[in-house]
């Protein structure tokens, strides 16, 4: 068996509102490029099989498991990582509710929750579960994460940021 050598390609990625030029193998996942080329290690490998959600980033505002997306697929899209979030309601809610222990799954959960409260401001329990069951937290009993996401949703509603 011989392993073919495929030349690397130069691509531009829009990461956290900055255009970044990277040279990658076509088979490099977005997760590996974010972590190993751009040094954005907030997104974590947990399974590299799309099963655990710890690598979740946002692509045009939607949560995406960056371990099952190629970096070359992310060209011309807005990529947001945990490093791109500053003082957001969901980060503060995770702090207030103690929604993490070891912190390893936390960036992935926060990205997913951040997208959820933006995309589904009226999310009910069923929608919240549909979204959040894609991520695994092994430390908490999930009640703190539930409290965090619900506190942001109810704050948004009472602030009238979203009216439906």
């Amino acid at each position: 068996m011989t392993i073919p050598r495929i030349p690397k390609v130069s691509i531009d990625l829009l990461v956290n509102n900055e255009m970044r030029n990277v040279v990658v193998r076509p088979s490099d996942t977005l997760l590996r490029v974010l972590r190993e080329v751009l040094g954005l290690t907030g997104a974590k490998p947990g399974c590299e099989n799309g099963d655990c959600g710890s690598c979740t980033v946002l692509i045009d505002g939607w949560p995406m498991k960056s371990c099952i997306m190629l970096a070359v697929e992310a060209v011309n899209q807005q990529i947001t990582t945990i490093e791109g979030l500053k003082d957001t309601p969901i980060q503060n809610a995770f702090l207030e509710q103690w929604a993490f222990q070891c912190g390893y799954c936390t960036p992935g959960f926060i990205m997913n929750c951040h997208a959820l409260v933006n995309i589904h401001p009226d999310a009910n329990d069923k929608v919240i579960q549909e979204w959040l069951e894609s991520n695994i937290c092994r430390c908490t009993g999930y009640e703190e994460i539930e409290a965090a996401v619900k506190s942001v949703l109810s704050k948004q509603r009472s602030d009238g940021r979203y009216s439906h």
Binding site: T41, I82, L85, L95, G103
Partner: peptide, 21 residues
């Protein structure tokens, strides 16, 4: 008392062994 390392963990700057490149 909040965790000593809390803010690192919600901002993605907390470093684990495999994050040290």
């Amino acid at each position: 008392v909040p965790r000593q390392e809390a803010s690192e963990k919600v901002t993605g700057i907390a470093k684990y062994t495999n994050d040290i490149n």
